[in-house]
Write a protein that binds this DNA or RNA. Structure first.
Lengths: 228, 228
DNA sequence: CGGCATCCGGGAAGATACTG
DNA sequence: CAGTATCTTCCCGGATGCCG
């Protein structure tokens, strides 16, 4: 006898008109928001997503991509030949979730249990820059940095008290930093001098080392919450 | 042979230095953020939480409260005699998660799948006011409304282009609305005239009915996202 | 190799009943 | 009222394998 698989769709819902509840239905499942984070700076392929999210298994990634596509958060797109590969990219509305990621990241950075020594993906680093940038500290500054993290290249421009960053090479960077995200986070958030990182072999910096120091001074982690 | 129970704590973690990932570890579990939402306007008892979150079973609520307390998001407090009951209240840091709730709620209100006809808790309604309030539309206004929702009473004050709301009775309200959250949402977000709600018996309104109309005009839902 | 099925073990979520 | 105990269901995560 064949049993009908009864998937009670309503079981997993909250039955709550509150927008927050609906947001949790869309991106409250495990890994969902982190997948969106990885797509915030541009489309990625299935394998790239897996590589940047160790611990996420292929079948779960497939489920999440299906779910997020069904909700209209992302869509799959076939790149034109000769690439002809499939990539996943956020919709405009999906990109608007950047505020959620930044707000959550800023809030959780104050957690007593937050461990900044864990691995960090390149996109995470760029998103953390957007989150922790302090416009007041960058007043009057004008500098451009290029980050080469593995095979991903990003550019950060600070001008008019604003930070703009994204994928791609810089035109005339003040400095080019090559390495992994972790030591860069150490410079920006851990107040380590970039020269020490270079001396230790963790990073390579070409160009104006002092520009890197000034850049790092634009960012600050919020103070830890006292939860007594 | 006795098998050792290996509780791999790291299984549920993301092993990611990103603040967003840590936030998801704290409040990414099912119901966690909705429990915090219900505490945003003041402490509640165990039974009150259950009542305002139908579908959340007692054992899961117990687990969430333990987890959130361990993270320092909330703490349990014993009210002094003669009440002598235990309540759960957010810590200062837990209250700071209001931005997360509002950002998520605003974002998800644009979802094509959002169903505003579902039930709404009193606290949800108040939080939605904070989320959807449009300061430009309230310029120059000065009015006070009292909402009596079941046995919970809230006051909303609009003044100097700002909305302030919280628990408690108003001193000299322009109007007092008695009923359930859903018809009130219909007035504020669905452009239903309050007089119709009163005529239909869904609400009772004492005082200046036109003040309710002006109040409703301060709020607007964001337009739906086009996900093509 | 990218994308996606399928099977399985462990554990979280959910419903219900029970206790102080 | 405020939880605990127990049982079932189903999701998560790992492994394997299929197919283009």
């Amino acid at each position: 006898m064949k049993l009908e698989k009864i998937t009670d769709q309503s079981r997993r819902r909250y039955e709550d008109a509150c927008g927050t509840a609906h947001a949790l239905e869309i991106l409250g499942e495990r890994w969902a928001l982190l997948i969106m984070r990885e797509l915030m700076l541009g489309p990625k392929r299935f394998g790239d997503l897996r590589a940047s999210l160790p611990g996420l298994s292929a079948n779960v990634l497939t489920q999440r991509l299906e779910g997020l596509e069904a909700y209209g958060v992302l869509k799959r797109r076939k790149l034109p030949p000769p690439a002809s590969v499939q990539v996943y990219e956020l919709t405009e509305w999906g990109l608007d979730a950047e505020g959620i990621i930044k707000t959550m990241g800023f809030w959780a950075a104050r957690s007593p249990d937050h461990d900044p020594s864990l691995p960090l993906s390149p996109v995470s680093l760029m998103m953390s820059f957007r989150t922790m940038f302090d416009a007041d500290k960058a007043r009057g500054a004008d500098l451009t940095l290029e980050f080469r993290l593995g095979d991903e290249v990003f550019t950060c421009v600070v001008r008019d008290g604003e930070l703009t960053n994204g994928r791609g090479e810089a035109e005339r960077p003040d400095a080019v930093i090559t390495g992994t995200p972790e030591p860069i986070a150490g410079i920006v958030y851990g107040d380590v001098d970039p020269a020490d990182m270079v001396a230790g072999g963790a990073l390579k910096i070409e160009g104006d080392m002092d520009a890197v120091r000034r850049f790092a001074a634009f960012f600050e982690l919020p103070e830890k919450a006292s939860v007594s």
